[in-house]
């Protein structure tokens, strides 16, 4: 199982609905493979049985052994096929990054649909426009274009749960930052995670809060490194991190009561 897939499924714990639809899709794909494998095995078994009657070996013990063997080969086959699927998905992912600009655009149009119906687990990554009404969920993104593998968009309250999942999976927190979407009267908080051990996987967790009431739970208890990042985001954007032990300005003067990175900030 690739690290991206693994992380995606771990993060899907936060979104039971998306997880259910994706699991269903995956189960369907698995059933199909299983059915095919079973058909192939049965055909083989029939051929074997014919061979057995020809040589006159009809002892029950032999038959049982053959049955056991068949079952084992069947399982092996399924396992192999599942591995192949992973490979195919990985290849598709690579192809996805090289599709032309126009195709990328077309993909974006169908993106909302794809999310609604639940895309397959390792479908080609979608390119993502700044999402106004993007539904909450986990997306696999085109690494070549976005620089990240997994993009999570969740409710503010779920930020800490996401951090907990990623912390257990061994991720490190690279940065926390905000974006002021003044036209939409919203503020976005972005958490960038990555791994420093094993294979590469970059995760961005985002959430949006109303501009009038910018409150997000702190993750500084889970990642002590988030302490400074949250202080910085607080002083630059005025986003309050609930539960933060020391939410005073870090880079600005200690009595600063302004938030310079707001789009309507007047120096």
């Amino acid at each position: 199982m690739s690290i991206i897939r693994e992380t995606k499924w771990a993060l899907l714990e936060l979104f039971p609905e998306q997880k259910a639809t994706e699991a269903e899709a995956e189960q369907a794909a698995r059933d199909k493979i299983l059915a095919e494998a079973r058909a192939a095995a049965e055909a083989e078994a029939q051929a074997d049985a014919e061979d057995a009657t020809e040589t006159g070996r009809t002892a029950e013990g032999d038959a049982a052994a053959a049955q056991g063997k068949k079952k084992k080969t069947l399982l092996d086959k399924v396992a192999e096929e599942m591995a192949a699927i992973d490979l195919v998905a990985a290849k598709e992912g690579r192809l996805g990054s090289s599709v032309s600009e126009t195709e990328q655009k077309a993909e974006t149009d169908t993106e909302a649909e794809a999310v609604a119906t639940g895309p397959e687990s390792d479908d080609p990554p979608v390119s993502l426009e700044p999402e106004g009404e993007r539904p909450h969920g986990v997306l696999v993104r085109d690494y070549a274009k976005a620089g990240i593998h997994i993009d999570v968009f969740c409710a503010p309250a779920m930020v800490a749960d996401a951090a907990r999942i990623l912390n257990e999976a061994g991720f490190t927190l690279e940065a926390v930052t905000g974006v002021d979407w003044i036209k939409e009267e919203q503020m976005e908080v972005v958490y960038d995670y990555s791994r420093t051990d094993g294979p590469l996987c970059r995760v961005a967790v985002r959430t949006r809060v109303p501009r009038s009431e910018p409150e997000v739970p702190t993750i500084s208890e889970i990642y002590p490194g988030a302490n400074w990042h949250e202080r910085e985001t607080h002083e630059f954007f005025g986003i309050r991190f609930q539960g933060h032990p020391n939410l005073v300005p870090l880079l600005l003067p200690e009595d600063a009561d302004f938030h310079p990175l707001l789009k309507d900030f007047q120096p």
Partner: peptide, 8 residues
């Protein structure tokens, strides 16, 4: 084009 990316 509109969008965001992360580069290290």
């Amino acid at each position: 084009a509109a969008g965001d990316c992360y580069t290290v």
